[in-house]
């Protein structure tokens, strides 16, 4: 029982940590701020999920479960909202996009609203 628990802890912690690290790497490597936001919002959410579940399995008390669940709920709401509001204000501030971007319908629509789909 203890051995299973330890293996589960290690697996969860390692997967969480690797996703956090990949998210940080993505902020260095990807070409423009929108792609970096993709990396940060997705990887840090799943990374926190793995780390918190690992901590709960290792600590194993009801209080740890409650706190981890609250943090998780907060992370799952806050990470997308934060990246959304950051992308929105960056677009409003005229952030130039990667030169391989195909089209930008938000810039086309700014001002008037489209009637076609």
């Amino acid at each position: 029982m203890d051995a299973t628990r330890e293996i589960a802890t290690v697996l969860l912690l390692v997967s969480g940590l690797s996703f956090m690290l990949i998210g940080a790497w993505g902020t260095v490597r990807l070409p423009d701020a929108y792609h970096r936001l993709h990396a940060s919002s997705k990887c840090s959410t799943l990374g926190l999920l793995g780390l918190l579940l690992g901590a709960v399995v290792h600590i194993g008390t009801a209080a740890a479960l409650t706190k981890a669940l609250l943090t998780l709920v907060f992370a799952f709401v806050a990470a997308p909202v934060g990246s959304h509001i950051l992308a929105r204000s960056a677009h409003a501030a005229g952030l130039e996009q990667w030169d391989r971007t195909l089209s930008d319908e938000l810039a086309e629509d700014q001002g008037d609203h489209p009637e076609d789909q």
Binding site: G23, A24, A33, R36, S40, S44, G47, L51, S83, A90
Partner: peptide, 18 residues
Amino acid sequence: HIADRVLAGDVLSLQVVA
């Protein structure tokens, strides 16, 4: 761009959480 810096600060705070 300044958005890149703010995004880096966001990721940094999550690393501290980790």
